[in-house]
Amino acid sequence: MNLIGNTPKTQEKPTDVTTEKYLVFQVGNETYGVPLLQVQEIRNYTPATRVPNAPDYVLGVINLRGNIIAVIDARTRFGLPPLPNEETTVIVVAQVDGKTFGLRLDSVSDVVDIPVDQIQPTPPIASEATQRFLSGVVQVGERVVILLNLREIFDLEALQQLTAA
């Protein structure tokens, strides 16, 4: 979208740096980020109802204004030991492919503008199972923000197979 109007139509990217808003939060020692556009809301933690036979990272289901959504525990999903609920524990409600789900986080810290062209691919050092959760890494000021791929974290297809077994 060009508001000045004198740039030729063929030019696709504006010359100035594009930034995207990311919600950043702490899991374990590191800072992670997800695109703010995918985040629907952040709510205080409410206990979830356990779903039998679901994988351990699925904490269960909660009531989101009349809809039933699943809550995934970020720590368990990343292979970290779970932490008890604190005042700061939140559920980030996000949408992936039209399905809404919650991600349980120890806390959220901030919304930051991330310059898109500075996102680097993550070096393939994590285990194969967790590598796919990552969509890149970026330096913002003094912080390193690890960007997450929510679709892979929710991974509906895997859930379908696990619960159907």
């Binding site: 809809n67 789900f101 619960t163």
Partner: peptide, 15 residues
């Protein structure tokens, strides 16, 4: 309420 709408079908449960 549907479990499938935002999650998956859970065998043994109707919703």
């Amino acid at each position: 309420k549907s479990l499938e709408e935002n999650f998956v079908r859970v065998p043994g449960f109707a919703g």
